[in-house]
């Protein structure tokens, strides 16, 4: 039986909750840091970078909390026999909240790469993505598909930036987002069970460590 929001029968249930909390902490910290830079520079792009990381951070927090609640409910239901309705309800609420916030975060990051002040494209992109997920027959697959497309766009932008300014900082960020994209593609194209979920989590962990390493490089004078 699937035991988490991604409906995965995982071999690392429990550990993934800790990882997701860690990702939430890193992304919210990055959001705060970007906001600090925004306050100094008043650059619109930085504001959307901060917003994107903040929404992704909240999405990870929800994923982690609801996965924890589901495991708790499952453990209880073993002793009380039937508890299925509550588990399904928890799963549905958590899943849609997580997917919406994650997509909103990725849309904000994509919007940042457009370098435009026209807010209409942000709203349009967000509306199309959310409607596609909500009305899809398989929302989870649609979610992974849309996030992969958004991540591919972000990776393309960072790759171009990396070619323009060849240094370690741009390389780490490009690699980080490439790992996030690869993780998504593993779940979308290969499988969402067992060892592949582990690989997905490992890719995400590498990505966020690279983002933290970048922050270290930025602060090192």
């Amino acid at each position: 039986m699937p035991t988490n929001l991604y409906q995965i029968d995982s071999i690392i249930i429990g550990y993934d909750i800790i990882l997701q909390l860690l990702f939430a902490f890193i992304t919210i910290f990055l959001s705060w840091y970007s906001y600090k830079i925004y306050k100094i520079t008043c650059q619109e792009q930085t504001k959307f970078l901060s917003l994107g990381f903040f929404l992704i951070g909240i999405a990870y927090t929800i994923l982690s909390v609801f996965n924890f609640l589901i495991i708790e409910e499952l453990l209880e239901s073993i002793s009380r026999i039937v508890h299925l309705k509550e588990i399904i309800l928890l799963n549905t609420i958590g899943l849609y909240a997580h997917m919406s916030l994650m997509i909103a975060g990725l849309v904000a990051l994509t919007f940042m790469t457009f370098k435009t002040k026209t807010i209409r494209s942000l709203i349009l992109l967000l509306a199309i993505s959310l409607i596609a997920i909500i009305f899809s027959k398989s929302p989870l697959e649609t979610f992974f598909l849309i996030s992969s497309i958004l991540l591919a766009g972000i990776v393309y932008f960072f790759t171009k930036n990396c070619i323009k300014k060849r240094n370690r900082k741009t390389k780490t960020i490009t690699l980080a987002f490439l790992f996030l994209l690869l993780g998504n593609l593993v779940l979308l194209l290969i499988s969402r069970s067992g060892i592949y979920y582990l690989i997905y989590n490992l890719f995400e962990a590498v990505a966020y460590l690279l983002i933290l390493y970048n922050l270290y490089l930025v602060r090192k004078r």
Partner: peptide
């Protein structure tokens, strides 16, 4: 450094 990293 931060702006360079994210192409801002």
């Amino acid at each position: 450094g931060f702006a360079d990293s994210y192409g801002l």
